[in-house]
Design a protein around this nucleic acid. Structure first.
Lengths: 235, 235
DNA sequence: CAAGATTAAACTGTCGACAATCGACGATTA
DNA sequence: TAATCGTCGATTGTCGACAGTTTAATCTTG
């Protein structure tokens, strides 16, 4: 069977997928702090506000639960997850494990195109370093690390990174500021890129371990300084 | 309205936590091969067969999608995921990454109680080695590895392992038999436990890397031997 | 006035229904 | 004859409703 009508290269039009939209909106609301940690997510309320029924909201909430942004107490509803210090530790610990691996894989797939992509991202980081938009700066930082996972070439690795990043984003509103000078952070990434190009697994691992470990220590310090909402959302 | 889609032979269920039950039942149906890879999962059919409405079934399907057991084609429904050879590779690659890390963490938390638990599990593996129940043998193997993740003490690490194992379980019906003598596999785990007790990170990593790598190579060989359903579940 | 009991409101879990959409099959045309 | 179009049944996406449970608000009582 031959191809009868040749494709003309049109972009598929936006699906009116409500579940996906609700998921994105809720995620943004949590990141932006409109939904504070521990807050109850009332299905009917969200549904009314968005002009949809509860069914899509419930399905979206289940997704966000699986993703770690919400917790579900049966018969009582969904609540915005409260990240404890131990959660932060777990996430950063996994990040190190995962990103070290991604780095090694990525270095094997390193092409000029990939190198340029990373290089350009570092440029973007330098550009946004001057602007007073911490959320944006953190986001550009994530983008760089995400690229490494993309280059590693494993869908599951990438999804894992996205999940972890998504959980960490919750803390942006909490922390509110970067833990170091943005330019300095960008420079750190230059060094990281250099090591990736060189391609020695041990060195890459050590470097990424230190890189993320540094962030871990700083964020951990900040989190422990905070009023540190003591309860665990249980009862 | 007649029954259009043929029943899959699912059992009835209780009346609380429907979503959880449907999730478990569908998972089992996939593992046991009642729902073959590529098969369409008709919401109404499943719902009718289980005696519930479509709402819980949809939510369960969404969970299984996030978990990688199902894929969703918008407006066309859910289908049982088809694992390609590259998927197997990704999963085992991640398993190595994750379980090496878990092993190192676990060795730090190693207590007599933990040691005994692992030891007993190896005994169980030896016991079931004689029985002609390959699914059971594989399950006991997973249990041992899961214990290591439990001992590691990170909820996220454990969940990650469960997700990966869940995806791999899909292949049990596909592979159908163990890739090696069960007793020999059990012995391998004894060596693994020994290394864990000793507590040298590098040795642990190397050992687990080799241990899982061996399974990877064997399973990979089996998968590539199969008719290897070439298409991607489209149409 | 405080603590427990009681009642009312709100919310979740689940269901059945309806319109929009998809895939299959047969009709149509060159 | 083969490719395209039109039609129809099956299935999804979404909705509004109802029962049971949880939460709060109010009342009772020592």
């Amino acid at each position: 069977m031959r191809l009868i009508t040749p494709p003309v290269g049109l972009t598929a039009l936006a699906d009116t997928d409500l579940v996906g939209q609700v998921t994105r909106i809720l995620t943004q609301a949590i990141i932006k702090g409109q939904l504070l940690p521990g807050a109850k997510v009332v299905e009917a309320g969200i549904a009314r506000e968005l002009g949809v029924s509860r069914a899509p909201v419930r399905e979206a909430a289940r997704l966000l639960e699986q993703q770690g942004l919400l917790v579900s107490h049966p018969r009582r509803g969904f609540f915005v997850r409260k990240l404890e210090a131990t959660d932060i530790d777990e996430i950063y610990d996994l990040r190190i494990c995962v990103e070290c691996h991604a780095g090694v894989l990525a270095s094997k797939n390193m092409t000029p195109a990939n190198r340029d992509m990373l290089r350009r991202q570092i440029d973007v980081m330098h550009e946004t370093a001057g602007i007073d938009d911490h959320a944006r700066q953190i986001e550009e930082d994530y983008k760089f690390h995400r690229m490494i996972c993309e280059i590693a070439g494993s869908k599951r690795l990438l999804r894992l990174f996205d999940d972890l990043a998504s959980e960490l984003r919750m803390t942006i509103g909490l922390i509110g500021r970067l833990y170091d000078d943005p330019h300095r952070i960008a420079q750190t990434h230059e060094a990281l890129l250099e090591v990736l190009e060189q391609g020695h697994p041990d060195i890459i691992t050590a470097r990424i371990d230190y890189h993320i470990g540094a962030a871990w220590r700083e964020v951990g310090k900040l989190v422990r300084e905070l009023p540190s909402s003591t309860n665990g959302a249980a009862t």
